[in-house]
């Protein structure tokens, strides 16, 4: 294609523009603030709860299944941050394509010599950078634990890796659902519903037959994060999140490429 400037040049330009757009968007600031406030609230709650547990006997804590700082604070904090991401990420991704489709910006972008996947990759990179920035800020408070206690750094690393992969998959699903509609609200609601369903299906494993529960554990985002948040980095879990991310982004690129078929004069 003429006008090529390397494989990533145009994707980088899109990512740069979208990142700047996030920092100009009141939605992104409000979303980020709510994310950090909820995260702070959960961190305070877990630390306080763990502090109270520490006053009990080891036997009592064993009965509750909470023996270490990782089990009492880091793991539940990461699980809750992931759940907050289900609320927050649809608000970040809803406008990425839906707004462009609604305002005619997508048509303008596609009149330039650019491939749909370059646009998708750029937007994904920008949203992931924004989410990662929020996650780093959110987990700074967990770093405080290293000053006052002795948490397992391995759990911290695997947990952050898991959060990064979960965030990537959530953003990719958000981009996919934003790419198929021109309605920003529809994009946000459908992303929220899809992520909530993929997460909460894991809650049913204790009430369904064993064979079904095993199948659910394979596809449940909640169960796929257990290893990461417990300090175990499993290649199967990494492959699952990467495959989900790649499939959703490929789907989005396909939808963008076929936008014309849905175009209206």
């Amino acid at each position: 294609m003429p006008g090529d400037r390397g494989v990533t040049g145009k994707a980088f330009a899109v990512a740069k523009r979208e990142t700047a757009s996030f920092f100009h968007s009141p939605v992104a600031w409000v979303t980020g603030t709510v994310f950090l406030l909820l995260d702070g609230y959960f961190f305070y709650t877990f630390v306080t709860y763990y502090h109270l547990l520490c006053l009990r006997t080891p036997e009592s804590r064993r009965e509750l299944g909470v023996l270490t700082l990782s089990e009492g604070v880091i793991r539940p904090l990461l699980e809750n941050v992931s759940f907050i991401a289900i609320l927050v990420i649809p608000l970040l991704t809803m406008g990425l394509f839906a707004r462009e489709r609604r305002d005619g910006l997508l048509e303008m972008n596609l009149s330039w010599p650019v491939r749909p996947w370059e646009i998708v990759a750029g937007k994904f990179a920008a949203a992931l950078l924004f989410f990662t920035s929020l996650s780093v800020l959110a987990l700074l408070e967990a770093v405080w634990l290293f000053r006052v206690a002795d948490p397992d750094p391995g759990v911290f690393v695997s947990g952050f890796t898991g959060l990064f992969l979960v965030g990537s998959a959530f953003i990719a699903v958000g981009i996919l659902l934003s790419s198929i509609t021109a309605n920003v609200i529809a994009a946000a609601v459908s992303t929220f519903c899809a992520l909530l369903a993929a997460w909460s299906i894991g809650w049913t494993v204790t009430i369904v037959p064993v064979a079904l529960s095993r199948a659910i554990e394979k596809i449940s985002l909640l169960h796929r994060t257990h290893g990461f948040f417990g300090g175990v980095i499993d290649a199967g879990d990494i492959a699952f999140f990467l495959a989900l991310t790649a499939a959703a982004l490929t789907g989005a690129a396909r939808f963008i490429a076929s936008s014309g078929w849905r175009g209206k004069e």
């Binding site: 003429p2 090529d4 899109v14 740069k16 330039w112 650019v114």
Partner: peptide
């Protein structure tokens, strides 16, 4: 400048 980048100019 963004449009120029999308048209392959750098």
């Amino acid at each position: 400048r963004y449009a120029a980048a999308m048209k392959g100019l750098a």
